[in-house]
Simulated scan of single mutants.
Amino acid sequence: MGRIFKERTSVDKALRLFLESISPLRHTEEVPLEACAGRVLAEAVVSGRDVPHYRRAAMDGYAVRASDTPGASPANPVLLQLSDSIEEGTSMWVHTGAALPEGADAVVMVEDTVTAGDLVEIRAQVYPGRNVGQIGEDIKREDLVFEEGHLLRPCDAAVLASLGLNKVKVFRKPVVAIIPTGDELVSRETAREVPPPGMVLETNGLMTALYVDRWGGIPRFTGIVPDRPESIKEAVEANLDADMILLSGGTSVGKRDHSPEVVASLGKLLVHGVGLSPGKPAALGAIGKTPVVCLPGYPVAGLVALYFFVHPGIRKLGSIPEVPEIVLRKRLVAKISSKIGYVNFIRVVFEGDRVRPLMGAGAGVLSSVAKADGYVLVPENVEGYEEGQEVDVFLIE
């Protein structure tokens, strides 16, 4: 690669090229229901039983034969005998969820009754099935409960448990190797004091690993690699067993930026230079079947590249269905300026029912993301937004 960006690829095209290079993983594993939330089903779940498997009371009250209650009302109650069995003229107390006694076909809510010794005044007429949960009312035997590819939630785990399952087959999580590069980086584990001028604590790897975990991958964090092509190459080759490789830093066109050319030497460099601000130096490639993302070293630029490329990449690798983002419509307190030809990632803070752009927050100022409530994306063909204009606001994850 030369020392200038020879071309700048649009975000949409860059993402398309990158995703086309990724094949979903099809390896599966069984996990206990206690650990299934956030995992993706690798096979359809068909019920092997009825839920519930018995007729049950849906209310606290008295089990009765509906035919014993015609015309019952507060002004004209029907008297039934309390009993341990149900037959003509008798009733039996039942709790919510209890099995309905043999012979009963309805439940009268306790609110519609008055007890007097061993008699019960029934003050409401009921019909067969009233306040009764029928067999299979929730799920019937051989019902398709969940399809393959379903993203499991805690409530889904409860449904699976009600079917008598203890484990479920899911797709394996993608392993994502995270390789921080840079002679200026100092490990947080070994740092004993404030680094000297020109040296910085390595924090991009921490942020990247946490996002990988949040998005459904397994982060594998390596040690810091110096700005030498041979060292970066060795680190990449040592991690080609991972499902995705992320190189952090060394993506621009300076004398110490070697990551894209290393990827090109080992595989195919799909994109170097994206119409994204911040995030222009991002590079995308593939080494064999392993997708590679070169993340800019500036923290916010690296974060934006994570959002735009790593997240969709993990989603495709893990067959993770896309969950619609929460998007808020808000009016701007102040004008947003942007670069034509780039998708601009503008951090904003809430002010009541409006939003204000964070000004003076460059790609190296990571705290600007922590201070932001959300972000606005200005399309590449739009030159900013005016004060008072309504915009879509995406929440910072």
Results as ranks from 00 to 15, higher is better:
residue 108 V to S: 08
residue 30 E to N: 15
residue 120 V to S: 05
residue 26 R to I: 12
residue 69 T to P: 00
residue 92 M to I: 06
residue 67 S to A: 11
residue 66 A to H: 04
residue 69 T to W: 01
residue 125 Q to H: 02
residue 35 A to F: 06
residue 108 V to C: 05
residue 122 I to Y: 06
residue 69 T to G: 03
residue 38 G to I: 00
residue 51 V to Q: 00
residue 124 A to C: 11
residue 79 L to I: 15
residue 117 G to D: 12
residue 50 D to Y: 03
residue 108 V to R: 05
residue 16 R to F: 13
residue 77 P to C: 11
residue 67 S to W: 01
residue 92 M to R: 13
residue 20 E to H: 13
residue 132 V to W: 02
residue 45 V to W: 04
residue 71 G to C: 03
residue 85 S to E: 13
residue 48 G to T: 11
residue 20 E to V: 00
residue 89 G to N: 03
residue 47 S to D: 04
residue 118 D to F: 08
residue 85 S to Q: 12
residue 102 E to W: 10
residue 64 V to K: 07
residue 67 S to K: 07
residue 21 S to I: 09
residue 55 R to P: 03
residue 101 P to G: 12
residue 128 P to N: 06
residue 51 V to N: 09
residue 124 A to L: 14
residue 95 H to K: 15
residue 101 P to V: 13
residue 91 S to R: 08
residue 51 V to W: 00
residue 47 S to V: 02
residue 75 A to K: 11
residue 123 R to C: 01
residue 68 D to P: 07
residue 115 T to F: 11
residue 34 E to W: 12
residue 43 E to I: 06
residue 101 P to E: 02
residue 93 W to T: 14
residue 119 L to Q: 13
residue 67 S to C: 04
residue 122 I to E: 01
residue 94 V to K: 05
residue 51 V to Y: 04
residue 69 T to R: 06
residue 109 M to D: 15
residue 120 V to Y: 06
residue 37 A to R: 03
residue 130 R to T: 10
residue 132 V to P: 00
residue 41 L to Y: 11
residue 123 R to F: 03
residue 70 P to T: 08
residue 59 M to E: 14
residue 19 L to R: 03
residue 98 A to W: 11
residue 127 Y to E: 08
residue 87 E to K: 15
residue 103 G to K: 02
residue 36 C to D: 03
residue 105 D to W: 07
residue 23 S to M: 14
residue 63 A to V: 00
residue 29 E to Q: 15
residue 105 D to L: 10
residue 116 A to R: 15
residue 75 A to V: 03
residue 41 L to H: 07
residue 96 T to S: 08
residue 94 V to G: 03
residue 19 L to W: 06
residue 124 A to I: 10
residue 25 L to H: 09
residue 77 P to D: 05
residue 76 N to K: 13
residue 129 G to A: 02
residue 34 E to D: 14
residue 17 L to V: 12
residue 127 Y to F: 08
residue 95 H to I: 13
residue 112 D to Y: 12
